[in-house]
Design a protein around this nucleic acid. Structure first.
Length: 412
RNA sequence: CGGGGUGUGGUGUAAUGGUUAACAUUUUCGCUUUGGGAGCGAAAGACUCCCGGUUCAAGUCCGGGCACCCCGACCA
């Protein structure tokens, strides 16, 4: 991609009222554009990252045998009435009417719709288990929206729903998805704790939140730095400074951003929808369900919260908008121009995602500052200085040190 | 929904009730410059959020809307 053609305009300053670091950098780097409170457009750079994250999630969902589907976002009232959530949902549903006065909700989650879809396709224990997921826009009629992408009223969410015939099998699948989640977050460059939390109306039993420990999160987590013990402060019986009930290390406290959540639903939704099957013993039983969600936009912002320095974002490799930022200093110099284009074309042909800063009149300072800001993991600078040594300068965004590499040694 | 705050070119800010709303940035053109948002010159860009009121005179004061941000309760 030629940077001169990129739909993007970096900004030097941010409005006073932007506070979250992720919001500042995503704004300055022109990854997003705000339409209204809790409503954001993803611009080309931002959407590339969004798509990368979605792809990581998709791969891991497929790896736990999830099958991708796409359900409507607009739901007839009756479906939500079947579980009583038309009125009880918190936050309340966005509701609207069609031209005949029929009422609909904009989907904030899809347990009802998934159960309905599943019902006609399950009759025997042989039909189970299976799991379905989608990556799709959700609408949440929250009271308040904060932190840029951290909490919005409309956001893409990956929601997976699993259907099981017996408790034991369900437990093992639940664990499998939990592990898959950790893998997703790791690939996204995040250290995430699995935190026990309350059921929040989805279920009466425990649930598990996936909390990225950051200074600005909305939740407070009591966790053990030595083992995997972690609890949401809301339900924690321990406090900071106490000994870990598992390994006796000293517990710590941190704020956290909830980037994922998994809910064992039991038969809460299979009951109202009559989601049953005939088991081996010939008896009719209710399907056991669970749901598992990840908010893509929030995850994106959280990645920035956890991966940045004073100059800008440091994207982890797997979710970066581009892999290489090719930055020639002074394109009026023929030698630099020729060599840069040669390397760019070569990279393009080898399928490397490269952003080529082909802007002629932009000074070196601005180019380098913008490069740090948008945070592509690897930067290649070509200048008179480097070409004098038949080299280019290679620098990882995450490192201070830059290295001169002979052009003939480039593994491209 | 309660509390607090803010609305001025694309962006960030300024303007004791008093000319033609200022500065920086941005963008365009020309020259110059090329290793950390370069310099000079010229130009573009604003019904000061909206409606009403007070006043000889309103960006500024008053009333009412609307929008946005922050703190609390809810959520991925």
């Amino acid at each position: 991609m030629l940077q001169s053609k990129l739909f993007y305009r970096s900004k030097k300053e941010v409005p006073n009222d932007i506070e979250a670091i992720s919001h500042k950098f995503l704004y300055r780097g022109d990854f997003i554009d705000q339409l209204g409170s809790g409503l954001y457009s993803f611009l080309p750079l931002g959407w590339r990252v969004h798509q990368k994250i979605a792809q990581v999630i998709r791969e891991e969902m497929l790896a736990v045998d999830g099958q991708e589907v796409f359900l409507p976002m607009m739901h007839p009232k009756a479906v939500w009435q079947q579980t009583g959530r038309w009125d009880k949902m918190s936050p309340p549903l966005f509701k609207l009417k069609d031209s005949h006065g029929k009422e609909f909700a904009l989907g904030s989650t899809h347990e009802e719709i998934m159960a309905k879809v599943a019902k006609d396709r399950i009759s025997s224990y042989k039909d189970l288990p299976f799991s379905l997921f989608q990556i799709q826009t959700k609408f949440r009629n929250e009271i308040r929206f904060t932190g840029g992408l951290l909490r919005t009223r409309e956001f893409a969410m990956k929601d997976l729903y699993s259907f099981h015939s017996d408790e034991k099998e369900f437990q093992s699948y639940y664990l499998k998805v939990a592990k898959s989640y950790l893998k997703i977050f790791k690939r996204c460059g995040l250290a995430v704790k699995i935190v026990e939390a309350s059921g929040e109306g989805f279920t009466n039993s425990f649930t598990h939140e996936f909390q990225a420990l950051t200074p600005i999160g909305e939740d407070t987590v009591i966790y053990c730095p030595k083992c995997d013990f972690a609890q949401n402060k809301e339900i924690a019986k321990n406090k900071e400074g106490d000994k870990c009930p598992k390994c006796k290390a000293i517990l710590k406290q941190s704020r956290g951003i909830e980037v994922g959540n998994i809910f064992p639903l039991g038969t809460k939704y299979s009951e109202p929808f009559g989601l049953s099957f005939i088991d081996k013993d010939g008896k009719k039983k209710l399907v056991i369900m669970a749901s598992y969600g990840i908010g893509v936009g929030r995850l994106l912002a959280t990645i920035v919260e956890a991966n940045h320095d004073e100059a800008g974002i440091i994207w982890p490799d797997e979710v970066a908008p581009f892999s290489i930022h090719l930055v020639p200093i002074d394109l009026k110099n023929k030698k630099i121009k020729t060599e840069s284009e040669r390397i760019y074309n070569h990279l393009q042909k080898s399928g490397v995602e490269v952003l080529y800063d082909d802007r002629v009149d932009i000074g070196p300072g601005q180019k380098l500052i913008e490069s740090d800001l948008i945070g592509i993991p690897l930067r290649i600078v070509i200048s008179e200085k480097t070409l004098d040594k038949d080299s280019v300068e290679v620098k990882e965004r995450s490192k201070k040190q830059a290295n001169l590499v002979k052009i003939k040694d480039l593994k491209i």
